[in-house]
């Protein structure tokens, strides 16, 4: 099977013709074989990383949020081939060495989830934010979290949870 690069200037591919795409997710190689039109979300989900959810495939809900080179992206709006060469992080990689991330614990403690369908996306969105802007203020956090939708909680408890995780993470930094 050809690698996708070989087609960049060459022949057309059929809609269902697969190519090899090299993804790196949670610090592990994730070799994917999929048609070039396969979305990043589908490529992840078809290759064992099903924790990334699809709520709309229209770029609106954020359930599919993953980090690409540390920045949140909507994996439903991106093609898998576009993520080649980048570092992907998904919910499966959030807990390190069997220990839950501060955000995961805070989500539990603050009732930030009910059905859990939006949770992976919110966790990744918040993880990206707290790493990029560890001192983000409440209003900034609220603004960023408003990018995603949670139908069960409305999002208030998610904001509380992210603020609590931020306190913990900053405390940890000394």
């Amino acid at each position: 099977m050809p690698h996708v690069d070989q087609h960049l200037s060459g022949d057309w591919l059929e809609a269902d013709e697969s190519v090899r795409i090299r993804l790196v997710a949670n610090d592990q190689e994730l070799p994917v074989e999929a048609p070039p039109r396969c979305t990043l979300a589908d490529a992840l989900r078809d290759n064992g990383l099903k924790g990334t959810r699809l709520g709309c495939e229209q770029g609106s809900c954020g359930a599919c949020t993953v980090l690409l080179d540390g920045r949140p992206v909507r994996s439903c709006l991106m093609l898998a081939v576009q993520a080649e060469g980048g570092r992907l992080e998904t919910v499966e990689g959030l807990a390190a060495g069997g220990e839950l991330h501060a955000l995961q614990r805070a989500f539990h403690d603050h009732g930030a989830l009910q059905c859990g369908f939006c949770t992976s996306g919110f966790l990744m969105l918040a993880a990206g934010l707290l790493r990029e802007e560890p001192d983000a203020g409440r209003e900034r956090i609220r603004e960023v979290l408003s990018a995603n939708l949670c139908r069960c909680t409305g999002g208030g408890p998610i904001l509380q949870a992210v603020l609590a995780a931020q306190r913990e993470l900053r405390g940890g930094r000394g």
């Binding site: 989900r45 990383l49 099903k50 924790g51 990334t52 959810r53 699809l54 998904t90 919910v91 499966e92 959030l94 807990a95 839950l100 995961q104 989500f107 539990h108 989830l113 059905c115 859990g116 369908f117 949770t119 992976s120 966790l123």
Partner: peptide, 13 residues
């Protein structure tokens, strides 16, 4: 709610 936090929850999809 661990399964929702670590992504292992299994929805029909």
């Amino acid at each position: 709610d661990l399964a929702f936090l670590d992504g292992t929850a299994c929805y029909v999809a």
